[in-house]
Amino acid sequence: MNALDLNHHISEQYNTELEDLRNKVLAMGGLVEQQISDALEALENLDGELGENVVFTDHKVNAMEVKIDEQCSWIIARRQPTASDLRLLITIIKVITDLERIGDEAEKIGHMASMLSEMKGSTSYSQQDEIMYMGQEVRQMLHDTLDAFARLHSKDATRIAHRDEKVDRQYESILRKVMTYMMEDPRTITLNMNIIWVTRALERIGDHSKNICEYIIYMVEGRDVRHTNFVGLDGVTGREDS
């Protein structure tokens, strides 16, 4: 049986308010996802203009965060939500914070892409393929996370959260290789530092997506799984990426 049922309040207006709020979160998620895609594309093609565009668009994400936050506080003041409604609002307030930070990370990547594009003679850089692979991985992770949010699906959220471990491993692997390059040829340090920042930003996006997954589990099941090595209901761990 579904723990969350956003409709059927006696107050029709309340239903509308919650639904509108949820749609806004999904819209914000969509915007952030787009930001990541653009940033990755800019990085892949070393497209400085597109990179700058990502930086420029970040204010939209910020504005949506503020707007949704405001709407949440108004609903809390007006409706004094309890149980699943309360969990939904708490979750939304937390989700949008993480979404906004993901937006910031995308902005950083966009900025790095434009810096890399300006670097003399750099049509490609070390580890480009690996970074793109990792980038697609975190983008997909966020995409699936937002789907789990839309579907109120805590089992999926459990599986997705565990994908963060893979992202962490990729981060470490790239870091090790980039460090070798820097030791081999100190002239590449500036370039490689930028690459480290990009990888770090991607790794953080994975962390934020994982946080969102944890909030989804809280929203649906009422269990707080933060800072635990959680397993899902019926022992779903998602470790095998099954």
Binding site: N2, K24, G30, L31, D147, A150, L152, S154, L233
Partner: peptide
């Protein structure tokens, strides 16, 4: 309300959100 531009980003998922919510099968709190 959500603006048209914002909606465009969330459109795909919005239709998911409006679909049946009884997909969740785990023994949640309720």
């Amino acid at each position: 309300m959500v603006t048209a531009e914002e909606l465009a980003y969330g459109m795909e998922r919005e239709s998911v959100a409006k679909g049946p919510l009884e997909i969740f099968e785990g023994g949640g709190q309720v």
